[in-house]
Design a protein around this nucleic acid. Structure first.
Lengths: 218, 218
DNA sequence: GTAGCCATACTAAACGTTTAGTATCCGAGG
DNA sequence: CCTCGGATACTAAACGTTTAGTATGGCTAC
Protein backbone atom coordinates (compact mmCIF):
# COMPACT_ATOMS: atom_id res chain seq x y z
CA UNK A 1 0.00 0.00 0.00
CA UNK A 2 1.13 3.44 -0.80
CA UNK A 3 0.10 5.26 2.36
CA UNK A 4 0.41 3.52 5.71
CA UNK A 5 -2.66 3.03 7.86
CA UNK A 6 -3.02 2.46 11.56
CA UNK A 7 -4.89 -0.43 13.10
CA UNK A 8 -8.33 1.10 12.80
CA UNK A 9 -8.24 1.96 9.14
CA UNK A 10 -7.73 5.69 9.23
CA UNK A 11 -4.85 6.81 7.11
CA UNK A 12 -1.91 8.18 9.03
CA UNK A 13 -1.44 11.79 8.14
CA UNK A 14 1.96 13.16 8.95
CA UNK A 15 2.79 16.28 10.89
CA UNK A 16 0.96 18.20 13.56
CA UNK A 17 -2.45 17.82 11.96
CA UNK A 18 -2.14 14.06 11.81
CA UNK A 19 -1.07 13.86 15.43
CA UNK A 20 -4.06 15.97 16.43
CA UNK A 21 -6.48 13.73 14.54
CA UNK A 22 -4.94 10.64 16.11
CA UNK A 23 -5.11 12.22 19.57
CA UNK A 24 -8.80 12.99 19.09
CA UNK A 25 -9.34 9.39 18.13
CA UNK A 26 -7.52 8.05 21.18
CA UNK A 27 -9.11 10.49 23.61
CA UNK A 28 -12.54 9.56 22.29
CA UNK A 29 -11.99 5.88 22.92
CA UNK A 30 -9.95 5.82 26.12
CA UNK A 31 -10.54 9.23 27.67
CA UNK A 32 -7.82 11.67 28.64
CA UNK A 33 -6.44 9.85 31.64
CA UNK A 34 -6.67 6.53 29.86
CA UNK A 35 -4.66 7.70 26.87
CA UNK A 36 -0.89 7.67 27.18
CA UNK A 37 1.40 9.82 25.10
CA UNK A 38 2.96 6.65 23.86
CA UNK A 39 -0.34 5.34 22.62
CA UNK A 40 -1.03 8.45 20.59
CA UNK A 41 2.46 8.45 19.18
CA UNK A 42 2.30 4.80 18.19
CA UNK A 43 -1.13 5.22 16.62
CA UNK A 44 0.12 8.24 14.71
CA UNK A 45 3.17 6.38 13.50
CA UNK A 46 5.69 8.59 15.27
CA UNK A 47 7.53 8.58 18.57
CA UNK A 48 6.87 10.53 21.72
CA UNK A 49 9.43 13.16 20.87
CA UNK A 50 7.41 14.24 17.86
CA UNK A 51 4.47 14.94 20.14
CA UNK A 52 6.55 17.13 22.38
CA UNK A 53 7.95 18.94 19.41
CA UNK A 54 4.47 20.11 18.37
CA UNK A 55 2.77 20.41 21.75
CA UNK A 56 4.02 21.73 25.07
CA UNK A 57 2.52 18.90 27.09
CA UNK A 58 -0.33 16.43 27.15
CA UNK A 59 -2.81 19.01 28.38
CA UNK A 60 -2.12 21.46 25.60
CA UNK A 61 -2.65 18.64 23.12
CA UNK A 62 -6.03 18.07 24.72
CA UNK A 63 -6.91 21.76 24.57
CA UNK A 64 -6.06 22.05 20.91
CA UNK A 65 -8.00 18.90 20.13
CA UNK A 66 -11.09 20.18 21.94
CA UNK A 67 -10.94 23.62 20.37
CA UNK A 68 -10.53 22.11 16.95
CA UNK A 69 -13.58 19.87 17.36
CA UNK A 70 -15.84 22.51 18.89
CA UNK A 71 -14.91 25.04 16.24
CA UNK A 72 -15.39 22.60 13.40
CA UNK A 73 -18.80 21.48 14.64
CA UNK A 74 -20.12 24.97 15.28
CA UNK A 75 -19.01 26.39 11.97
CA UNK A 76 -20.45 23.38 10.19
CA UNK A 77 -23.83 23.76 11.85
CA UNK A 78 -23.88 27.49 11.25
CA UNK A 79 -23.05 27.05 7.60
CA UNK A 80 -25.80 24.49 7.11
CA UNK A 81 -28.55 26.10 9.17
CA UNK A 82 -28.08 29.81 8.64
CA UNK A 83 -29.47 29.84 5.06
CA UNK A 84 -32.66 28.06 6.21
CA UNK A 85 -35.50 30.50 6.75
CA UNK A 86 -38.07 28.25 8.46
CA UNK A 87 -37.23 27.75 12.18
CA UNK A 88 -38.91 24.35 12.21
CA UNK A 89 -36.76 23.19 9.35
CA UNK A 90 -33.69 24.62 11.05
CA UNK A 91 -34.35 22.59 14.18
CA UNK A 92 -34.77 19.45 12.13
CA UNK A 93 -31.60 20.20 10.21
CA UNK A 94 -29.59 20.50 13.42
CA UNK A 95 -30.93 17.22 14.72
CA UNK A 96 -30.07 15.54 11.44
CA UNK A 97 -26.55 16.91 11.49
CA UNK A 98 -26.02 15.55 14.98
CA UNK A 99 -27.48 12.18 14.04
CA UNK A 100 -25.29 11.93 10.98
CA UNK A 101 -22.27 13.03 12.95
CA UNK A 102 -22.90 10.44 15.64
CA UNK A 103 -23.56 7.63 13.18
CA UNK A 104 -20.55 8.11 10.91
CA UNK A 105 -17.50 9.60 12.58
CA UNK A 106 -17.62 9.98 16.34
CA UNK A 107 -16.59 13.58 16.62
CA UNK A 108 -19.44 14.41 18.92
CA UNK A 109 -18.67 11.41 21.07
CA UNK A 110 -15.26 12.96 21.57
CA UNK A 111 -16.91 16.09 22.94
CA UNK A 112 -19.25 14.12 25.20
CA UNK A 113 -16.48 11.90 26.56
CA UNK A 114 -14.09 14.70 27.35
CA UNK A 115 -16.89 16.87 28.70
CA UNK A 116 -17.89 14.29 31.26
CA UNK A 117 -14.31 13.54 32.23
CA UNK A 118 -13.34 17.21 32.56
CA UNK A 119 -16.19 18.02 34.94
CA UNK A 120 -14.11 17.79 38.10
CA UNK A 121 -10.64 17.28 36.69
CA UNK A 122 -10.09 20.30 34.45
CA UNK A 123 -11.80 23.54 35.37
CA UNK A 124 -10.75 25.58 32.37
CA UNK A 125 -11.62 22.86 29.90
CA UNK A 126 -14.94 22.30 31.59
CA UNK A 127 -15.60 26.02 31.22
CA UNK A 128 -14.96 25.70 27.50
CA UNK A 129 -17.57 22.97 27.24
CA UNK A 130 -20.00 24.92 29.36
CA UNK A 131 -19.73 27.91 27.05
CA UNK A 132 -20.20 25.63 24.07
CA UNK A 133 -23.41 24.21 25.46
CA UNK A 134 -24.64 27.70 26.35
CA UNK A 135 -24.04 28.87 22.80
CA UNK A 136 -25.84 25.79 21.52
CA UNK A 137 -28.88 26.44 23.71
CA UNK A 138 -28.84 30.12 22.89
CA UNK A 139 -28.85 29.30 19.21
CA UNK A 140 -31.92 27.14 19.65
CA UNK A 141 -33.59 29.72 21.84
CA UNK A 142 -33.33 32.30 19.11
CA UNK A 143 -34.68 29.87 16.55
CA UNK A 144 -37.66 29.08 18.75
CA UNK A 145 -38.31 32.71 19.57
CA UNK A 146 -38.26 33.68 15.93
CA UNK A 147 -40.76 30.90 15.30
CA UNK A 148 -42.95 32.29 18.02
CA UNK A 149 -42.78 35.82 16.66
CA UNK A 150 -43.74 34.68 13.21
CA UNK A 151 -46.74 32.84 14.62
CA UNK A 152 -45.41 29.40 13.71
CA UNK A 153 -44.97 28.30 17.32
CA UNK A 154 -47.26 28.89 20.24
CA UNK A 155 -46.35 31.75 22.54
CA UNK A 156 -47.15 30.27 25.94
CA UNK A 157 -43.95 28.26 26.30
CA UNK A 158 -40.66 29.63 27.52
CA UNK A 159 -38.16 29.57 24.69
CA UNK A 160 -35.28 28.91 27.08
CA UNK A 161 -36.97 25.89 28.61
CA UNK A 162 -37.87 24.62 25.16
CA UNK A 163 -34.27 24.98 24.02
CA UNK A 164 -33.15 22.98 27.03
CA UNK A 165 -35.41 20.08 26.28
CA UNK A 166 -34.56 20.11 22.59
CA UNK A 167 -30.81 20.06 23.20
CA UNK A 168 -31.31 17.51 25.95
CA UNK A 169 -33.17 15.24 23.60
CA UNK A 170 -30.31 15.38 21.12
CA UNK A 171 -27.69 14.64 23.76
CA UNK A 172 -29.72 11.82 25.24
CA UNK A 173 -30.28 10.18 21.89
CA UNK A 174 -26.57 10.31 21.23
CA UNK A 175 -25.71 8.77 24.59
CA UNK A 176 -28.13 5.94 24.01
CA UNK A 177 -26.77 5.37 20.52
CA UNK A 178 -23.13 5.28 21.60
CA UNK A 179 -24.03 2.79 24.29
CA UNK A 180 -26.15 0.56 22.10
CA UNK A 181 -25.77 1.22 18.38
CA UNK A 182 -27.46 -2.06 17.55
CA UNK A 183 -30.65 -1.23 19.41
CA UNK A 184 -30.79 2.50 18.73
CA UNK A 185 -31.24 3.98 15.28
CA UNK A 186 -30.03 7.46 16.11
CA UNK A 187 -31.41 8.94 12.92
CA UNK A 188 -34.97 7.78 13.39
CA UNK A 189 -34.75 8.35 17.11
CA UNK A 190 -33.89 12.00 16.58
CA UNK A 191 -36.50 12.27 13.86
CA UNK A 192 -39.12 11.23 16.40
CA UNK A 193 -37.66 13.68 18.85
CA UNK A 194 -38.10 16.55 16.40
CA UNK A 195 -41.61 15.40 15.47
CA UNK A 196 -42.57 15.37 19.10
CA UNK A 197 -40.95 18.71 19.80
CA UNK A 198 -42.59 20.44 16.85
CA UNK A 199 -45.96 18.89 17.60
CA UNK A 200 -45.71 20.35 21.09
CA UNK A 201 -44.65 23.75 19.82
CA UNK A 202 -47.39 23.99 17.22
CA UNK A 203 -50.34 22.57 19.12
CA UNK A 204 -53.07 24.97 20.30
CA UNK A 205 -52.19 26.36 23.77
CA UNK A 206 -55.33 25.07 25.48
CA UNK A 207 -54.95 21.54 24.22
CA UNK A 208 -52.03 20.75 26.49
CA UNK A 209 -53.63 21.82 29.76
CA UNK A 210 -56.33 19.27 29.38
CA UNK A 211 -53.77 16.57 28.73
CA UNK A 212 -51.07 17.02 31.32
CA UNK A 213 -52.76 18.69 34.23
CA UNK A 214 -54.17 15.44 35.48
CA UNK A 215 -50.75 13.98 36.12
CA UNK A 216 -49.17 17.11 37.50
CA UNK A 217 -50.31 16.87 41.08
CA UNK A 218 -47.94 14.83 43.18
CA UNK B 1 -15.33 15.48 65.92
CA UNK B 2 -16.45 12.04 66.88
CA UNK B 3 -16.45 10.49 63.43
CA UNK B 4 -13.73 11.45 61.00
CA UNK B 5 -14.66 13.01 57.68
CA UNK B 6 -12.80 13.23 54.43
CA UNK B 7 -12.14 16.48 52.58
CA UNK B 8 -15.53 16.66 50.96
CA UNK B 9 -17.68 16.32 54.00
CA UNK B 10 -18.94 12.79 53.68
CA UNK B 11 -18.43 10.73 56.78
CA UNK B 12 -15.92 7.97 56.46
CA UNK B 13 -17.60 4.66 57.00
CA UNK B 14 -15.29 1.82 57.89
CA UNK B 15 -15.06 -1.55 56.25
CA UNK B 16 -15.91 -2.79 52.81
CA UNK B 17 -19.04 -0.69 52.46
CA UNK B 18 -17.21 2.52 53.25
CA UNK B 19 -14.50 1.74 50.75
CA UNK B 20 -17.12 1.05 48.11
CA UNK B 21 -18.87 4.37 48.76
CA UNK B 22 -15.57 6.24 48.61
CA UNK B 23 -14.64 4.46 45.40
CA UNK B 24 -17.94 5.48 43.81
CA UNK B 25 -17.23 9.04 44.82
CA UNK B 26 -13.74 9.04 43.33
CA UNK B 27 -14.74 7.25 40.14
CA UNK B 28 -17.54 9.76 39.64
CA UNK B 29 -15.20 12.72 39.86
CA UNK B 30 -12.04 11.45 38.19
CA UNK B 31 -13.20 8.50 36.14
CA UNK B 32 -11.78 5.00 36.38
CA UNK B 33 -8.41 5.61 34.75
CA UNK B 34 -8.00 8.90 36.60
CA UNK B 35 -8.58 7.33 40.00
CA UNK B 36 -5.65 5.60 41.65
CA UNK B 37 -6.01 2.93 44.27
CA UNK B 38 -4.03 5.14 46.62
CA UNK B 39 -6.47 7.99 46.15
CA UNK B 40 -9.44 5.84 47.10
CA UNK B 41 -7.61 4.45 50.08
CA UNK B 42 -6.59 7.90 51.33
CA UNK B 43 -10.10 9.27 50.84
CA UNK B 44 -11.53 6.31 52.70
CA UNK B 45 -9.09 6.77 55.54
CA UNK B 46 -7.35 3.45 55.03
CA UNK B 47 -4.33 2.16 53.13
CA UNK B 48 -4.02 0.03 50.05
CA UNK B 49 -3.79 -3.11 52.12
CA UNK B 50 -7.39 -2.69 53.18
CA UNK B 51 -8.48 -2.31 49.57
CA UNK B 52 -6.73 -5.45 48.44
CA UNK B 53 -8.08 -7.35 51.34
CA UNK B 54 -11.69 -6.67 50.31
CA UNK B 55 -11.30 -6.58 46.52
CA UNK B 56 -9.24 -8.70 44.18
CA UNK B 57 -8.08 -5.77 42.04
CA UNK B 58 -9.09 -2.35 40.84
CA UNK B 59 -11.42 -3.69 38.20
CA UNK B 60 -13.39 -5.83 40.61
CA UNK B 61 -13.82 -2.79 42.80
CA UNK B 62 -15.25 -0.97 39.80
CA UNK B 63 -17.59 -3.85 38.98
CA UNK B 64 -18.97 -4.01 42.50
CA UNK B 65 -19.41 -0.25 42.57
CA UNK B 66 -21.33 -0.26 39.30
CA UNK B 67 -23.52 -3.19 40.27
CA UNK B 68 -24.28 -1.59 43.60
CA UNK B 69 -25.36 1.68 41.98
CA UNK B 70 -27.40 0.14 39.19
CA UNK B 71 -29.15 -2.18 41.60
CA UNK B 72 -29.89 0.56 44.10
CA UNK B 73 -31.31 2.88 41.45
CA UNK B 74 -33.48 0.27 39.80
CA UNK B 75 -34.96 -1.06 42.99
CA UNK B 76 -35.62 2.49 44.18
CA UNK B 77 -37.44 3.41 40.98
CA UNK B 78 -39.40 0.18 41.00
CA UNK B 79 -40.46 0.70 44.58
CA UNK B 80 -41.64 4.21 43.93
CA UNK B 81 -43.32 3.71 40.57
CA UNK B 82 -44.86 0.27 40.81
CA UNK B 83 -47.74 1.31 43.13
CA UNK B 84 -48.75 4.13 40.77
CA UNK B 85 -51.62 3.13 38.54
CA UNK B 86 -51.69 6.01 36.09
CA UNK B 87 -48.94 5.61 33.42
CA UNK B 88 -48.68 9.39 32.95
CA UNK B 89 -48.03 9.85 36.64
CA UNK B 90 -45.52 7.03 36.57
CA UNK B 91 -43.53 8.71 33.82
CA UNK B 92 -43.53 11.95 35.75
CA UNK B 93 -42.47 10.16 38.90
CA UNK B 94 -39.47 8.60 37.15
CA UNK B 95 -38.38 11.95 35.77
CA UNK B 96 -38.68 13.48 39.22
CA UNK B 97 -36.63 10.72 40.79
CA UNK B 98 -33.88 11.27 38.25
CA UNK B 99 -33.97 15.02 38.75
CA UNK B 100 -33.78 14.68 42.51
CA UNK B 101 -31.03 12.13 42.21
CA UNK B 102 -28.99 14.37 39.94
CA UNK B 103 -29.51 17.46 42.05
CA UNK B 104 -28.65 16.01 45.47
CA UNK B 105 -26.17 13.15 45.37
CA UNK B 106 -24.53 12.36 42.07
CA UNK B 107 -25.18 8.68 41.90
CA UNK B 108 -26.52 8.91 38.39
CA UNK B 109 -23.53 10.94 37.32
CA UNK B 110 -21.43 8.01 38.44
CA UNK B 111 -23.31 5.79 36.03
CA UNK B 112 -23.05 8.27 33.18
CA UNK B 113 -19.33 8.87 33.69
CA UNK B 114 -18.38 5.23 33.88
CA UNK B 115 -20.72 4.35 31.04
CA UNK B 116 -19.03 6.76 28.68
CA UNK B 117 -15.57 5.73 29.76
CA UNK B 118 -16.27 2.01 29.51
CA UNK B 119 -17.54 2.22 25.94
CA UNK B 120 -14.28 1.12 24.33
CA UNK B 121 -12.19 0.23 27.36
CA UNK B 122 -14.24 -2.40 29.16
CA UNK B 123 -16.46 -4.65 27.10
CA UNK B 124 -18.11 -6.56 29.91
CA UNK B 125 -18.83 -3.44 31.94
CA UNK B 126 -20.19 -1.70 28.88
CA UNK B 127 -22.47 -4.67 28.38
CA UNK B 128 -23.75 -4.21 31.91
CA UNK B 129 -24.63 -0.60 31.16
CA UNK B 130 -26.20 -1.55 27.86
CA UNK B 131 -28.46 -4.03 29.59
CA UNK B 132 -29.34 -1.41 32.19
CA UNK B 133 -30.42 1.07 29.54
CA UNK B 134 -32.38 -1.61 27.73
CA UNK B 135 -34.24 -2.47 30.90
CA UNK B 136 -34.90 1.22 31.48
CA UNK B 137 -36.31 1.69 27.99
CA UNK B 138 -38.30 -1.51 28.25
CA UNK B 139 -39.83 -0.31 31.49
CA UNK B 140 -40.95 2.89 29.82
CA UNK B 141 -42.18 1.06 26.76
CA UNK B 142 -44.52 -1.03 28.91
CA UNK B 143 -45.75 2.07 30.72
CA UNK B 144 -46.50 3.77 27.42
CA UNK B 145 -48.14 0.73 25.94
CA UNK B 146 -50.38 0.30 28.95
CA UNK B 147 -51.35 3.94 28.56
CA UNK B 148 -52.20 3.31 24.95
CA UNK B 149 -54.29 0.26 25.75
CA UNK B 150 -56.28 2.13 28.35
CA UNK B 151 -56.97 4.88 25.84
CA UNK B 152 -54.96 7.47 27.74
CA UNK B 153 -52.31 7.82 25.04
CA UNK B 154 -52.79 7.92 21.30
CA UNK B 155 -52.21 4.70 19.45
CA UNK B 156 -50.44 5.92 16.34
CA UNK B 157 -47.00 6.28 17.90
CA UNK B 158 -44.51 3.48 18.36
CA UNK B 159 -44.06 2.80 22.05
CA UNK B 160 -40.42 1.83 21.57
CA UNK B 161 -39.60 5.07 19.78
CA UNK B 162 -41.46 7.04 22.43
CA UNK B 163 -39.52 5.29 25.18
CA UNK B 164 -36.27 6.20 23.43
CA UNK B 165 -37.08 9.87 23.29
CA UNK B 166 -38.33 9.94 26.87
CA UNK B 167 -35.23 8.28 28.25
CA UNK B 168 -33.09 10.43 25.97
CA UNK B 169 -34.67 13.56 27.34
CA UNK B 170 -33.87 12.51 30.87
CA UNK B 171 -30.26 11.68 30.05
CA UNK B 172 -29.78 14.89 28.11
CA UNK B 173 -31.20 17.02 30.90
CA UNK B 174 -28.82 15.38 33.33
CA UNK B 175 -25.81 15.94 31.09
CA UNK B 176 -26.67 19.60 30.71
CA UNK B 177 -27.19 19.95 34.44
CA UNK B 178 -23.90 18.30 35.39
CA UNK B 179 -22.10 20.56 32.97
CA UNK B 180 -23.81 23.78 34.03
CA UNK B 181 -25.72 23.49 37.31
CA UNK B 182 -25.97 27.27 37.58
CA UNK B 183 -27.74 27.66 34.26
CA UNK B 184 -29.83 24.48 34.30
CA UNK B 185 -32.56 23.80 36.82
CA UNK B 186 -32.76 20.08 36.27
CA UNK B 187 -36.06 19.76 38.11
CA UNK B 188 -37.96 22.29 36.05
CA UNK B 189 -36.14 21.19 32.92
CA UNK B 190 -37.36 17.64 33.35
CA UNK B 191 -40.81 18.88 34.30
CA UNK B 192 -41.01 20.62 30.94
CA UNK B 193 -39.75 17.48 29.28
CA UNK B 194 -42.57 15.44 30.79
CA UNK B 195 -45.15 18.10 29.94
CA UNK B 196 -44.01 18.08 26.37
CA UNK B 197 -43.91 14.32 26.17
CA UNK B 198 -47.36 13.86 27.63
CA UNK B 199 -48.81 16.62 25.48
CA UNK B 200 -47.49 14.78 22.46
CA UNK B 201 -48.82 11.42 23.64
CA UNK B 202 -52.29 12.74 24.42
CA UNK B 203 -52.90 15.04 21.47
CA UNK B 204 -55.37 13.92 18.78
CA UNK B 205 -53.56 11.89 16.11
CA UNK B 206 -54.49 14.15 13.21
CA UNK B 207 -53.32 17.32 14.91
CA UNK B 208 -49.63 16.46 14.54
CA UNK B 209 -49.61 15.77 10.85
CA UNK B 210 -50.71 19.30 10.12
CA UNK B 211 -47.99 20.69 12.32
CA UNK B 212 -44.86 18.78 11.43
CA UNK B 213 -45.34 17.65 7.87
CA UNK B 214 -44.36 21.04 6.53
CA UNK B 215 -40.85 20.78 7.88
CA UNK B 216 -40.34 17.11 7.10
CA UNK B 217 -39.26 17.33 3.48
CA UNK B 218 -35.52 17.88 3.18
C1' DG C 1 -4.51 -18.79 69.99
C1' DT C 2 -6.43 -18.04 65.90
C1' DA C 3 -9.08 -15.68 62.54
C1' DG C 4 -10.45 -11.26 60.64
C1' DC C 5 -8.83 -6.79 59.37
C1' DC C 6 -5.63 -3.81 58.21
C1' DA C 7 -0.65 -1.15 57.96
C1' DT C 8 3.89 -1.23 56.21
C1' DA C 9 7.25 -1.93 52.91
C1' DC C 10 8.20 -3.27 48.86
C1' DT C 11 8.54 -4.58 43.21
C1' DA C 12 8.02 -4.04 38.41
C1' DA C 13 6.03 -1.63 34.99
C1' DA C 14 4.06 2.42 32.95
C1' DC C 15 3.76 7.13 32.95
C1' DG C 16 4.81 12.24 31.39
C1' DT C 17 8.66 14.81 30.32
C1' DT C 18 13.48 16.07 28.98
C1' DT C 19 17.54 15.68 26.39
C1' DA C 20 20.94 14.79 22.89
C1' DG C 21 21.40 13.73 18.48
C1' DT C 22 19.96 12.93 13.34
C1' DA C 23 17.85 13.15 8.76
C1' DT C 24 15.78 16.17 5.41
C1' DC C 25 14.69 20.16 3.21
C1' DC C 26 15.41 25.07 1.55
C1' DG C 27 17.15 29.45 0.21
C1' DA C 28 21.50 32.07 -0.36
C1' DG C 29 26.65 32.59 -1.78
C1' DG C 30 30.30 31.40 -4.43
C1' DC D 1 25.54 23.84 -10.13
C1' DC D 2 27.17 23.02 -5.94
C1' DT D 3 27.42 23.74 -1.12
C1' DC D 4 27.04 25.68 3.12
C1' DG D 5 24.07 27.13 7.26
C1' DG D 6 20.23 26.95 9.58
C1' DA D 7 15.52 25.71 10.34
C1' DT D 8 12.19 21.91 10.59
C1' DA D 9 10.69 17.49 12.08
C1' DC D 10 11.67 14.12 13.98
C1' DT D 11 14.24 9.42 16.82
C1' DA D 12 16.21 7.04 20.72
C1' DA D 13 17.27 6.93 25.22
C1' DA D 14 17.03 8.27 29.77
C1' DC D 15 14.98 10.56 34.11
C1' DG D 16 12.14 10.86 38.09
C1' DT D 17 7.56 9.87 39.52
C1' DT D 18 3.38 7.30 39.88
C1' DT D 19 0.98 3.26 39.25
C1' DA D 20 -1.23 -1.49 40.29
C1' DG D 21 -0.22 -5.19 42.76
C1' DT D 22 2.21 -8.33 46.52
C1' DA D 23 4.37 -10.09 50.59
C1' DT D 24 4.52 -9.84 55.32
C1' DG D 25 3.89 -8.47 59.84
C1' DG D 26 0.93 -6.95 63.66
C1' DC D 27 -3.09 -5.71 66.48
C1' DT D 28 -7.71 -6.83 68.24
C1' DA D 29 -11.89 -9.56 69.34
C1' DC D 30 -13.51 -13.78 70.39
Amino acid sequence: MATPANGRGRRIEPGKGGILLTAIDCFTRHGYAGTSIDRIARAAGVTKGALYYHFRDKEQLLFEAVKERIGAFESYVLGKVEPIADPAKSLRAIARICAENAATDNHRRFILTLMVEALDTNVTLSGEFREMLRRFRSFHRHLIRSGQESGLFRNDVDASAAAETFVGGILGAEVQFYQDPEAIDVRSSLETHVDQFLAWLTMPPDAQRRATQSAREV
